Amino acid sequence: MGTSGWRYPEWRGTFYPAGLPQRLELEYAAGHLDSLELNASFYGLQRPSSYLKWRGATPEGFVFAVKGPRLVTHLNALHQVRVPLANFFASGVLALADKLGPVLWQLPPRLAFDAALVEEFLALLPRSTAAAAELAAVHGDLPAERTWTGESGAAGAFPERPLRHALEVRHRSFASEECYGLLRRYNTALVVADTAGKWPLLDEVTADFVYVRLHGSAELYVSGYTAAELDAWAGRVRGWLAGSRCPDGAGRDVYVYFDNTAAAHAPFDALGLSTRLSGQRARNAAE
């Protein structure tokens, strides 16, 4: 449970205590939430030193979801993206090690469903950290100080782990059984995105986990969620956790991120939803 990013001026003196140094905001947020989306990676490649710093500033068990670069999703629109993908995974993402959660790929509203193109993209995505390191090794001309691939023996080297991917779509043509079947074939989660009605809210379970982004129910990125709305989302999450909302009846891991960040509602809504689910999560841990 968490928010989309953590560095917002509107949060200072509201969620963050007055006078808290900016360099301590991640540590503070991670002390109250158990996951955050890394958004900076969408706008450009980050440095390995940044990923290592973010990893070190968060407690054991914390998870980052990392947003894939817009060069892949928006500028190239999924065409000829093998090298950009390699550069992304070579840029330090893997330095998060056991704190690396799902990778989020957000498509632009103009991009309609093209089965061949989407399948080509999904087939390129690495499904383990070892596969990601292998892809990263064929990166473009990144300078050495901007490269971290986690080779055996490297500082911070990691054990191999599965790597999950989630796809957020914004064109209504993705609402099709062909799309859902394709995502299930590649175990890729279709993001459940609440966008104040601007883009489709698709509620199909297509992977062994569920990924939810709550951008605002009334005003995109701005409006907070009412108690009744949080109750309703808590009910949905319980259903995914328990399997009652899943086609095979099997429970899923669920990642929820609030992106209604503009007026500082996101962290408080995340805490409100987390409180509603605390009993369910405790039961799951005990089972």
Rank of each mutant, 00 (worst) to 15 (best):
S223P: 06
F113H: 13
E119V: 09
R213E: 08
F268V: 07
G251D: 06
W233P: 01
N187A: 14
A90Y: 06
L117T: 03
E177Q: 13
A242P: 00
G19Q: 05
H74M: 08
F268I: 03
G56D: 15
N39Y: 02
W11Y: 11
G101E: 13
F121Y: 15
S217H: 14
R252H: 07
Y225Q: 08
A116C: 00
G235E: 15
R161F: 09
P143L: 14
H74W: 09
G156A: 04
A86G: 06
E60C: 00
V81G: 06
L190G: 03
G216Q: 03
G44H: 15
D231H: 07
P247W: 13
H265T: 02
A154W: 13
R146G: 01
Y186P: 00
A30E: 06
P59M: 12
D34C: 11
P267E: 08
E168Q: 13
E10Q: 14
S4G: 08
V192N: 08
G2R: 13
G243R: 04
R252F: 05
V192I: 14
A175H: 14
V192E: 12
A133R: 15
L96H: 07
F258Y: 07
S274K: 15
S128Y: 05
R82I: 00
R184N: 07
P247D: 14
L75P: 00
P102Q: 12
E160A: 15
R252K: 15
L214A: 10
V210P: 01
R276T: 03
G92M: 04
P143G: 11
Y16K: 05
T206N: 09
A154N: 01
T147F: 07
A29W: 02
A97L: 03
L125C: 11
P108V: 10
L26Q: 08
H79K: 14
N87W: 01
L45G: 10
G150R: 07
R7D: 15
V81R: 03
E119T: 07
L85A: 10
S217K: 11
A40E: 11
Y28L: 09
G249S: 08
V191K: 11
L24S: 08
G156I: 05
S217E: 12
A196V: 08
L71A: 14
Q106S: 13
K99W: 03
A227R: 10
L201C: 10
R172P: 00
A154V: 07
